[in-house]
Amino acid sequence: MSGDIRLPAADAAPTPLHDRARRFTAPEVVAGAAALFFVLAAVVPQWVAPGNPLGINPLSAFQPPSFAHGFGTDESGRDIYTRVVHGTGSSLLIGAAATAIGLGLGIVLGTLAGMFGPVVDFTVNRVLEVLFAFPGLLLALLFILVFGPGVITATIAVGLSTAPGYARIIRAQLIAVRRSAYVEAATVQGLGRTQILLRHILPNTLAPLFVLATLGVGQAIVWAATLSYLGLGAEPPTAEWGAMLSAGRTYITSAWWMSFFPGLFIVLIAVTATVLGRSLDRRLRHA
């Protein structure tokens, strides 16, 4: 129905960068360091922030950033830096797992559509159109209302609502790759359909998905945050960035730090993932 969606070309950085493809650029180094920090925060948060993310102290609520509380305190007097660090794990999990679900479903549907002839393609396309015609937020909302709120349902809901987008892009990419010269060459050589799929088409289709997936992680966290805003996200007192952002929004006129720092970390994750994803992709292509 709609026209093919072209993927952003993976090695589309401006020409001056091409020469240095094998050296680490400054953004890559910074992004690498940030990634290390995020991994540490997700795996061993107590090393990065030794405090208790759930420890309330009502009488020191709404404290602006200070030496004692670098990011300030929230409405229950909890240290926001500690909460942001301890929230990395669940937020990353939401981002990564939702993207994996969306991408996984997208790959299955996209491959079905792109590889198994016009009848399957037609059917899958109709299914995709139905999914597309649903506003993503409604899909997520209905899913959560049916299965109950919480981090897991929110993650699945976000994954589901992003799947059709991935599926359509993968299908378009597959069709483009299948028409390409080297696949035709492989067909002429008499390779079987499965072999062509596994050895030629999928690798050439999936590599560019890195860029897409890295964009997706940040998007998924933002989606989950919106569900928190609607009151259907992570259950309290989980320190999850989306839930913190949503809670902080209530006090935005009097305590900006409550939503600024969780928001900052969502953006940082998105930037880090994008920079690393692109660099990884470039290296894979040049390898």
Partner: peptide, 12 residues
């Protein structure tokens, strides 16, 4: 929201 936060503090 303030009431929901009270419940969180009671939880703690």
């Amino acid at each position: 929201p303030a009431e929901q936060s009270i419940f969180e503090q009671i939880q703690a």
